[in-house]
Simulated scan of single mutants.
Amino acid sequence: MNAYLSVWRLRFINGMQYRAAAYAGMVTQLFFGLVFIMIYVAFYGHSTHEQPISLKDVVTYTWLQQIFLAFIMLWFRDNEIFQLITGGNIAYELCRPCGIYEFWFAKLLAQRVSSAVLRCFPILLIALLLPQTYRLSLPQSVTTFMLFLVTLLLGLLLIVSISMLIYISVFWTMSPTGSILMIAVAGEFFAGLIIPVPLMPAWLQQASYALPFRWTADFPFRVYSGQIPQTEALWGVLIQLLWLAALIGFGRWSLNLALRHVVVQGG
């Protein structure tokens, strides 16, 4: 366990050094957050039907996406791991006195946390100071906020476990491009990052509920806004834990299978 905590700490410290990139990303996230909110304001202003989610909750949903983008984006990748697999340097990883799955998991988790820490607080402050229509709303109660934190952290673990499957697939495909495109595009859509899940047609919502992606972003954000009641949120935490156990179990099995057939050429 100390080895995994150490690599997490080192990766976190290393990630905190990229401040210029983080500030540039923060400006981009603010820009896109405002653009998306303007689109929703225009949509709600001209809609003649009552929507399943209020404009206030959609604005909050959008800002939470931008604030915690590093937690929920599936296209976030570590090229070093891809190069280890495709270049043959995976042999060095096999010599480590620790599990590869846990080692990589800790690295990916630290990278996401460090990126989020650098960006989230300035965006949060600005989103709270905007005019009423564009402002991030506060949670209804302390209990709701605590539930949000629990679901958000579980969502982060879920997104890392899904990302691990992308890296593991490269043992067979030898190219990360296809895996990233397929999983990232589908994952972002069903997680509600393109349009919020409540605004989807009923049949697409059912498909979203049957997949793990929705539990990484849509579920925590709707817990924050209070659209998902606290009792339902507690059941959702249980489902998140079940998905997490299933994904980690499948990922470990897949990695062990890949390592049994891996061939390292050269010398």
Rank of each mutant, 00 (worst) to 15 (best):
S175G: 10
L156S: 05
F71K: 06
R222M: 05
M174A: 10
V113Y: 05
L154Y: 07
S179P: 02
L154M: 10
T86W: 09
L69M: 14
M200G: 04
V197L: 04
Q265A: 14
Y167L: 04
R11E: 13
P229T: 13
M73T: 14
T60I: 01
I248V: 11
L255H: 03
L204S: 09
I67R: 00
Q206T: 12
T173H: 02
I67H: 01
W104Q: 07
G251H: 04
I123M: 00
V150N: 08
Y134F: 01
F250M: 10
A246Q: 08
A184M: 04
S54D: 13
S141A: 14
E50H: 15
Q17E: 15
M1G: 05
D218K: 08
V58S: 01
A91R: 09
L204W: 12
S54K: 06
L257N: 05
F43G: 07
I166Y: 07
E80Q: 14
G266L: 11
R112T: 02
R9P: 00
V35M: 08
L94P: 13
Q140H: 09
T177S: 14
Y209N: 12
P201W: 14
L154D: 05
Y92S: 03
T173N: 03
S169C: 07
L211E: 03
M26K: 06
T231A: 08
R11F: 13
I180R: 03
I100S: 06
L108P: 01
I72T: 15
L259Q: 02
F12A: 03
L165I: 13
F189Q: 03
S6H: 13
M200C: 03
F71I: 06
M26G: 03
V142H: 08
L130S: 00
Y18Q: 13
G226T: 06
V237T: 07
